[in-house]
Structures are given as structure tokens and as C-alpha cells.
Nucleic acid binder design. Structure first.
Length: 392
DNA sequence: AACCGCTGCAACCGCGAGAAT
DNA sequence: CATTCTCGCGGTTGCAGCGGT
């Protein structure tokens, strides 16, 4: 069955909006609020399609629209977010207050894509020069297969990362070595806490750069876990006991084959956002002050069909600690896990994190405000690893 | 002055997903 | 449960403005 058009096109104005139309629309929305776009034009007395009204309001008339050129800081953020999120313009725009998805999309298409492709060609040229001069390559373990999505091929070691989905608040990332009882084993004494995570929307389940071996649904779950939660972060001291978190039971724990580059980018990005230098995002003013003081008990949770879907792509769950119920593994369990997963497909740590100021994160623990949705222990599984020729 | 090609951006379109019926 | 409605998203188009010839 064909889809009916959103409105009758006959007798409607099209093309550029006049000042009068803008004024009518603005005034109507000022009085009645936005929404109900289908009937809005008729009520407002506009000869426009509802979609056209919505677009005009969201992209142009909204009072909080930021005018003017994209500043260098914003540009850099767009580039990084695009590397992370791909063409998910609305998500990217959500990180840039006052900017619209349309504006960012246009800016990308007209400025940044050309700029970056130019940079990339220059980079390739320099790489060729480097390889022809036989200069030593940095220490590495393997190279990821290039994804068809806009995630750069990078050289990584890897880590085990725990990922959950559809969280809204109180999302926590703990540093490597967290044993569930206290933070005495924290490498840095810090944990990253994600705050005020925007309510999950359907858009958060859209496409995400992941490897070819998993389905869209699965990839979107990864996307939700690794990117939509990156709205606000802060570094917080890890000082108090959080043993009740360790007792927490999850519905199930699966692991999956995600794109390690994506996850690594996410972790790097998290680290960047936690940096004091990051002032592009609003401060997490209304987040709780310390994750340790939060009520972490939730549940019992139910296992959903979506969760079961992960089983299809598990590589070897017997290697994973806590494969059927979620508890935070202690150091010994983690060590055993890593020892048992020194298979070539498993990678122990992220080079990029080691080499940056980021803390190596071995667990990513997220908790939903409304319902416990802890669902998956993930590990990074490399697909088609390519060996870089070792140069003595 | 006229034409042409390019650029940037506003607007349009089709589609998917969730909500409503 | 099936169908319809509504909204939002991302890709694409169309056009105004600009500079070069």
C-alpha cells in the first residue's frame, strides 16, 4: 500500500519563505507552541506543508538558533563527532548548542569533507614517503580491517569493554582494575562519570560504524552504548565503597564482535570530554556529585528479546567471566579472563589509550535511571586482522 | 554586459520508526 | 494485530550570489 502524502501539495506555497510567512509561523508557535505540524499550517493560516513549517522553525526561526560562522572549536568538534558517529547529523548537532543538523550537514558537505579528503591525500603522500624511507613503525600488534563506515583504520591493541544500552542517567565508566568492592585498585583513582544522558530516542538506534559481521540492530545497540551516552562527562574521584554495584545482577551478559576502532574512538572521546580543556559542552550541573553515593540497586531486570539477539554473534562466551549473570569481575577473574583470551582475536589493551592521557578502561558500566538495562559484556573482537610488516 | 560554472545554503523528499487508532 | 498517523532523519535538489572569462 502506498504511503499517503503528508499533505495536499495543491495550492501550497513552495520555495523560499517570505518574511510575512516567517512572522505568522513564529507568532503562532509563540502562542500555541510547536508540534502538531500537520494541522499547524491550517490553524496558523499558512499555505505551507506541515513538514515545511517544521523545517523552517527548527532550522531557521527557532530563537535559540546560533547565527554566524562555525568557529574552529566547533569545527574540530564536528570532525571528531563525525569520525565517531558518521552522518548522524542530528546527534552531532545535539552536541553543538544552537546549531542545527541541517547546518552541520551543509557545513560538512561544503567545507569539511573536501578539507578532510585533501588532508587525507596529503597524509597518504607523507606515509608513502615514510615507508619508502624504511623508517621504523611504532610498536603495534595488529591493524583493524577498514570499515565501510567513516571510522579510520587504526592500529590498536585492545581491551575488554563492558557495554550497555539505552541508559539515561548515572552512567559510569570505571578504570581498569576496579574490583567491585572499593577503588583501591584503581590505576588512577579516577572514574569517568557520564551525566544527564539525553533520553534515548529512536534516532539513537540508527546506523553506526561497526564491522560487517553484525546486524544493524546489533550495531545500533553498540552505537547507543558507545556514543549516545557521551553527552556530558566529568572526572570524579573514586573514593567510596560501591560494593552494592558488584552485587548487582543483570539479566544476562553477552559479548559481541564490535568494531574496535569505534569503541576505541569512543573511549578516547570520553577522555577528551572529561578534560578540563573541553568547554564546548555544558557543565553537568545537575548531575549527582559522586557515583558512589548513588543508589545503584536496580532490578530484577528482565531479559529481552533484543538481549538474546546478542547470542548470535558471541564468539566464545565460555571465555568471559560472568557470562550468565553480571557481577563485576575482581582482579583475579580479570587476569584469568585476559590470560584465557590471548587468542589472536583478542587484544589486551588499547595502545591509543596508553599513548594518550586517557586511562585504560577495562569496564564500562552503565546504569539506567528508569530500568536496569545492563545487558552485555563485550569484548573487542578483531575481524580479519592484518599484520603490519615488521621492520627490524 | 552577458554568460558560465561554482559554492553555499535553504528547502524538499522519501523513508523508517514509534505512537495512535 | 493491522493499519494509519505523525514525527524526525538524512540525502538530495534548487536557487541565489559570486567571481571569472
Amino acid at each position: 500500500m502506498g504511503r499517503s502524502p503528508c499533505c495536499s501539495k495543491e495550492g501550497l506555497n513552495r520555495g523560499a519563505w517570505t518574511k510575512k510567512e516567517d512572522m505568522i509561523l513564529s507568532e503562532y508557535i509563540r502562542i500555541h507552541g510547536d508540534g502538531g505540524w500537520r494541522n499547524l499550517p491550517k490553524k496558523a493560516g499558512l499555505k505551507r506543508c506541515g513538514k515545511s513549517c517544521r523545517l523552517r522553525w527548527l532550522n531557521y526561526l527557532r530563537p535559540d538558533i546560533k547565527r554566524g560562522n562555525i568557529c574552529p572549536d566547533e569545527e574540530e568538534l564536528i570532525i571528531r563527532l563525525h569520525r565517531l558517529l558518521g552522518n548522524r547529523w542530528s546527534l552531532i548537532a545535539g552536541r553543538l548548542p544552537g546549531r542545527t543538523d541541517n547546518e552541520i550537514k551543509n557545513y560538512w558537505n561544503t567545507h569539511l569533507s573536501k578539507k578532510l579528503s585533501l588532508n587525507e591525500s596529503q597524509h597518504k603522500t607523507s606515509q608513502n614517503l615514510i615507508s619508502s624511507s624504511k623508517s621504523p613503525l611504532p610498536v603495534q600488534t595488529r591493524v583493524f580491517k577498514a570499515s565501510p563506515f567513516p571510522v579510520q583504520t587504526r592500529v590498536f591493541k585492545a581491551t575488554a569493554v563492558k557495554i550497555t544500552t539505552a541508559v539515561r542517567h548515572s552512567d559510569i565508566i570505571r578504570p581498569n582494575g576496579y574490583n567491585g568492592d572499593d577503588c583501591s585498585n584503581c590505576i588512577s583513582g579516577k572514574a569517568l562519570k557520564l551525566c544527564n544522558v539525553k533520553e534515548a530516542t529512536k534516532s539513537s538506534w540508527r546506523g553506526i560504524p561497526v564491522n560487517d559481521s553484525i546486524t544493524n540492530e546489533q550495531s545500533e545497540r553498540i552505537a547507543s552504548a558507545t556514543t549516545d551516552n557521551l553527552i556530558q562527562t566529568e572526572a570524579t574521584n573514586c573514593t567510596s565503597s560501591t560494593s552494592n554495584l558488584a552485587d548487582q545482577q543483570s539479566p544476562d551478559s553477552d559479548h559481541f564482535a564490535g568494531d574496535a576502532a569505534t569503541l576505541a574512538e569512543s573511549l578516547l572521546y570520553l577522555n577528551d570530554l572529561s578534560s578540563p580543556d573541553c568547554n564546548l559542552l555544558p557543565s553537568p550541573s545537575d548531575c549527582s556529585t559522586d557515583f558512589a553515593s548513588q543508589e545503584l540497586h536496580r532490578g530484577p531486570a528482565s531479559l529481552t528479546e533484543e538481549t538474546n539477539g546478542f547470542e548470535d554473534m558471541c564468539c566464545d562466551q565460555s571465555n568471559m567471566p560472568c557470562a550468565n549473570s553480571f557481577t563485576v569481575p575482581d582482579d583475579q577473574e580479570m587476569e584469568e579472563f585476559f590470560n584465557s583470551t590471548q587468542h589472536e582475536n583478542w587484544i589486551p589493551e588499547l595502545d591509543c589509550l596508553e599513548n594518550s592521557s586517557a586511562q585504560p578502561l577495562s569496564l564500562l558500566l552503565l546504569e539506567s535511571e528508569d530500568e536496569w538495562e545492563e545487558r552485555s559484556i563485550s569484548t573487542l573482537l578483531l575481524e580479519d586482522p592484518l599484520q603490519i610488516p615488521q621492520i627490524p
